[in-house]
Amino acid sequence: MSPNRILWLVVKLIAALWMAAAGYAIFFVAPDESTMHAIQRIFYIHVSSAWTAGVAFFLVAVGGVLYLIKRDPRYDWAGLSAAETGFVFTTVVLVTGPIWAKPIWGIWWTWDPRLTSTFVLWLMYAAYLLLGTLVDDKQRRSVLRSVYGIFAFINVPLVFMTIRWWRGQHPSPVIAGAQPGSGLDPTMKAVLFLTWGATLCLFAVLMRSRYRLEVIRGETEELRQLAEDSAVAPASNRPFVSAVTPTGFAGRG
């Protein structure tokens, strides 16, 4: 086994142990919330998934910027991996939210700005993932994805502003921008950060395996291209292939 593989095996092991610890802390260490009781405990998963998704989408934007500067497909692959993993965590946020909301608010969903904007985030990254499947040209696909990843990320702060300006039903922030008088119990805060650490660890493991898949895909695509090129020698004798190959953006690609 290569040192790299051993390292990742250790990371995986840490992730598993950390998640087990977080699970224990959520149910046995965190104090009972005075009005919401047990259902409040979903908060730790909900919030830490949301934060992790935020980190993931930040990495998508960083990957996009780096790809546009360096033109190395590996940055695009990293961005794609982060987007897909972040998309999963956003799904977790959108599923755990209504589970909490039904007993507390009495409804599964409300069109509150923050819920709406999380849903918009989910839609944007769904579009991001779809977009890669609809563009055939390798390089163009990477550029398009990078640009969209950056644009989608720009929308994130606007999402955050909406809760402050058109305030809805969503619970007020308890960590950043909390009002005096409200706030989080120190033990609860500790459990929240412990869970977030576990979620981040899981995210790293998922993103890494997704990235490796993309590397293998990239290599396969290249090898297939190579095989195709060597099987049919002169390109001019391939009217069909040249007909389906998209002409360059400016006709000289």
């Binding site: 918009v120 839609l123 779809l130 609809l134 163009r140 969209y148 606007l158």
Partner: peptide
């Protein structure tokens, strides 16, 4: 401009961006 199903893809990309 070069994507497949671009008539569908463009609204799909743009409408969420337009939310704010």
């Amino acid at each position: 401009a070069h994507a497949r199903m671009r008539e569908l893809l463009l609204p799909l990309l743009l409408l969420p961006i337009f939310t704010p």
